[in-house]
Amino acid sequence: MIYNDFTSGDSFIHRFDPRIKILIALFFSIITALSNKIPAILSFFVLAIILVLISKLKFKILFSRLTIVNIFILFIWFILPFSYPGKIVFHIGSLQASREGLINALEITLKYNAIILCNIALLSTNPIFQLTHAIRHLGAPDKFVHLFFLIHRYAFVIFDEYKCIRDALRARGFRPKTNFFTYRTYAYLVANLLLKSYERSEQVHRAMICRGFTGKYWVLEHFALKWRDIFVAITIFTAITTLAIIQWMKIL
């Protein structure tokens, strides 16, 4: 359930320097989020699709992920057209849908999916070791780097622990319903997880001290920036910047 399905794969994007991938993802997200013209947003959307295509991800998983995260967007389509004042296009009973509202909903849908696709292609394709290593290089404080790595590491361990308790509950015939008994049971489940984690954290800490932990995140393999990486990075950055300039200089 919490396994990252996109790290496995062998494409150009997978081999691309994670530091550059993070920087591009950040730049892309900011510019797309701030865009407000449909043609510009559409081109960012296309750019994101190209990135995803290059990274040769499994289409089925990709599609199911996008469906899940788009539920919120569906909600927007039901509300925005009717709450945005403007030229009326159609109406359902007394609810009037405005043209501006529909355009706004379309803008949000495209922006959102463009950013999500870009994140899948550029962030989700990195194994966690590389991401941790990369954020360290990009200047994240040491303590933050450790938190990032350890929270990810132990989320998996504790998720297994949770599955154990959940299966035990099922084996005893527990069926969640809307009642106090269910809520109390879940409360005890979380309380037990917290208890176990607290004790585990003591063990982790002692183990780290035994291994000479001084607050540094050591890595064996270092990143080596290749000319190809730099070339591709410059191309993508230029593309995004050009689109941004065209948009905000009102050339479109």
Binding site: L150, A155, I158, Y183, V190, Y198, S201, H205, T214
Partner: peptide, 26 residues
């Protein structure tokens, strides 16, 4: 947060991360 506290903060935070995946019927 001292360095000594990082493992504790991390493990507890992971627990909350997992707890946020638990769905409760309503």
């Amino acid at each position: 947060m001292d360095f000594d506290k990082t493992p504790r903060v991390a493990v507890m935070a992971s627990t909350f991360f997992v707890a946020s995946l638990i769905h409760v019927p309503i």
